[in-house]
Amino acid sequence: MNPAFQLCSVDKSFGSGESWTPALKQANFEGQPGEMLFLVGPSGCGKTTLLSILCGTLLADSGDINVLGNSLHRMNDREVTSFRARHIGFIFQQFNLIPTLTAEENVSVPLLIENKPADQARRLAAGLLEKVGLADKCREYPARLSVGQQQRVAIARALVHEPSLVVCDEPTSSLDSATGHQVMELLRDVARDGKRAVVVVTHDPRIYGYAERMAEMEDGRIQRWWNSPEEIAAAHAETLTERRQQ
């Protein structure tokens, strides 16, 4: 099976002179379609930088970035932007819903970016909101939704244009434990149903049990891989026991 994405020998640094800071050092990272892949590690280890490069919101200094059969490092800004619109779904730590748009309008944004007709976009958005259990919240503004509902709206927005890669940045860090598990179950279904690769950057050990594979970053590169739920379970037994108790 072809990998959904493959990042090879990626370097990225910020600043120059005395403020020069290397964020990624010859980092390698790859994921398969239909799998839920976790990227973990301490703060400042380069997880978000790697995620940003993977989804084309940040340019690497060097290295090969192949995502869904496309070489992002060979594309210009316009092409990368179009690629993101078509193929990538985003789920953010702070949801990043537009507060002046209703839930339905927020969800329809990716379709409108792809120039889908407004009524079709709205219909699809409403359908997806129904799937995430928010059928009755279509016309609500984000401020009137709970944080869990907001994250579900964000998930619906990430999936409405049927992307092949979904990137999630700390999707549960703003949520309580129960809501966090609901959201992760939803994301696991997303990965399985659509053969999508779902990459989750997280600090939250409560959700490690949802990972099918996990990579740990440290000092700008992947230091360790756990290649099955069993390996992950073994490595994080204490955390998972805690989860089961919950």
Binding site: C55, T57, D77, R78, T81, S82, F83, R84, A85, R86, I88, F90, F92, N96, I98, P99, V109, P110, I113, E114
Partner: peptide, 14 residues
Amino acid sequence: TRHLGVLRAMGTQT
């Protein structure tokens, strides 16, 4: 800024 950034990230051309 953040919302414009979100729109850019989601693929809206500059």
